[in-house]
Amino acid sequence: MSFTRPDGRGNEDKRPLHIIYERLDRVDGSARFGFGDTKALASVSGPIEVRLAAEQPSKATFDVTVRPLSSLPGTESKALATSLRGLLSPSLILSRNPRTLLQLVVQSLTPSPIESYPPSLAAACINASSLALLNAGSIPMTGVVCAAGVALFRSTTEEDIPALVLDPSESESREAVGCGCFAFLFRTEIAGSQPLPTNDTPGARLVWTNWHVKDGTSDDGELARAQALGLAGAETIWRAIKQSVPQMDNLPPPPLPSRSTAGELGIITQSDEVSDQDMNDAKIEI
């Protein structure tokens, strides 16, 4: 692979991950997720009272709103919200709280082009939603959904090996021949009582694909390879989320398996007052 990325990353490298549990006061759960500068904030309220018209007798109504950084939400926000509802539903047990409302609001913190959300921003929205649902803890879940963006570049001069890159930045996804987002549901089947080995990921199942290629080739493997790269990205995100969960409630952080990995993943812990102060600053900034 002779393809080099503008920011010097390897083809399968993500930008540093940011996982921050916002602890917004007026909602049940909230979290911020970012790939480098591509960030999204999500909040969850529920189960709460539902409008009579939207009430469902056998399960909770799941309402998702996506808001862009500037201007009013358009059809692209509605489309992403519908996708989010569809892809998060398999991870939630909505039938436990019938006749209630589960409200998820996702606020993009990155400017996006008017027509669409770039794949990495969509992935950040999905991951932030999963974190907020974990943070709320009020809705029973069957698993955690993690997503990653993938972009495809074709070299014109070199021998024709298309390069697939993970977590494309906005300029990369604009220039790429193809790009898309893949979301996976990570779920452990409760078969035995054996706990999972520390760094092992549970079985993942594809819940969302959104793949577009400009100049199509009839190469069957391309989609499968992009999907596999998306899965590899989603697995590292799942591990980062797992490491972040013990620090969610501002408890002293448990000894991490290795400090270097945590630093590499860029998890921001909020274990002491200093980082709490940072948190407040961040809130004002938003």
Partner: peptide, 21 residues
């Protein structure tokens, strides 16, 4: 497209890896 090249793939809901192919 008319030549059989894949232009886009969209999927929503749980699917196995081989279902897509």
């Amino acid at each position: 497209d008319e030549g059989g090249a894949l232009l886009s793939a969209g999927q929503l809901g749980i699917a196995d890896k081989d279902t897509m192919s």
